[in-house]
Amino acid sequence: MQKFDLEAQGLRALNAALHALNGQTNETAWEVVNPKGSHSIAVGLDAPIELTVHGSTGYYCAGMNKQATIRVKGSAGPGLAENMMSGAVIVDGNASQYAGATGRGGLLVIKGDASSRCGVSMKGINIVVHGNIGHMSAFMAQSGNLVVLGDAGDALGDSLYEARLFVRGSVKSLGADCVEKEMRPEHLELLADLLKQGEAEHLAKPEEFKRYGSARNLYNFNIDNASAY
């Protein structure tokens, strides 16, 4: 077990030490204390390590993560796990705006609420939010799955591409070109698996969710859709 005091040792030293492990395969456990809302904690990792941050983080925690499993025992600031490639990021508290933005793979679990633009422009990541999500979530989401146990804010899935959105609670409003879709057996199966991965199988059942996706009306320009642009 490696313990790192962020306040005493500094961000550059932390990320440099973690990058020194990139490409290695030996699993190691890391603990980071005193994060105090600092930005860019554990960004650019590329090794199957287990890292726990004790406290709340600032912008871009776990940005562009590959392979690593990063747990935040607190809340996370804007751009949590942005552009994640693989691995997992699990936050006990809330996440600020842009959680999982542009993520291309891996699993993001937020046990509290996520703020606005959760999963914006997501490209393959799976996101499981135990609480609610804010407005403009999954804006221009391209692929991957967003699972929300609570409610969604305004303009969910605006200008959506092929990402799948599953919401258990209410949706304040749907964005342009986002529609409710039929929940088929394969979706229930997928959702059951995502709930399990997202440490939420004891909290919700797949049948309680509705599925939302792209109506695909904006896929090729048509003047009759001009008001949606």
């Binding site: 550059r12 990320n15 860019s40 804007p78 751009g79 842009y98 422009s121 221009m140 896929y219 320009f221």
Partner: peptide, 27 residues
């Protein structure tokens, strides 16, 4: 048709940009 956004998805304005640049430097 592929539509590209006009703003970055995870930052807006120079104060956020400073934090984004630092993230890219750290990575």
């Amino acid at each position: 048709d592929q539509r590209s956004a006009c703003r970055h998805p995870d930052w807006t304005g120079p104060d956020d940009l400073e934090i984004k640049i630092n993230e890219l430097r750290e990575i």
